[in-house]
Amino acid sequence: MKRRTFLSGTSVVAISMLARPWRLALASEQLTDAHASTLLRMVKDIFPHDMLNDDPYLAVVSQLKGASADPDMSAMLVSGMADLDAAGEGRWADRDSMQRVADLGAIETTPFFITVRVTALFGLYGNPGIWSAFGYEGASYEQGGYLFRGFDDLDWLPEPLS
């Protein structure tokens, strides 16, 4: 419902990027494997779920890499990760988890963070492969809905009187 919120967020990102002087200088920057591993760490820190393996997070990283074909996007991601690294000792991705989360908290209103968060939000929670881990059962039409599959199986409260 609020998808537009985030699409709007990304268009704000695009506009702000056009105004940045380093845009052309960094336009040809490519995402390296190190960048990809940093993005994976970041996506897992933004939406941590111990019950999930890396696959759905790697799918989000692939989406971000795909989006980075756009030079503006690529420049923003590379620069955002460089800023994270520069904000403390060593690579951001190698810091302990409390520190990583604190570092992300410090940038949570930046276009870089918002772009990664929104891509992860739709990429992760829109991925049917993860739904069963949450107890969400997804499409039901093909199985005849829930009329004979537990739409009223809650048994810890009395039945409503009509």
């Binding site: 609020k2 998808r3 919120t5 933004i46 939406f47 949570e108 939000l121 992760l124 929670y125």
Partner: peptide, 12 residues
């Protein structure tokens, strides 16, 4: 939709 609207800037 819950993840999207539950908190417009939620994470962590």
């Amino acid at each position: 939709n819950l993840a999207v609207v539950g908190d417009a800037s939620g994470w962590g």
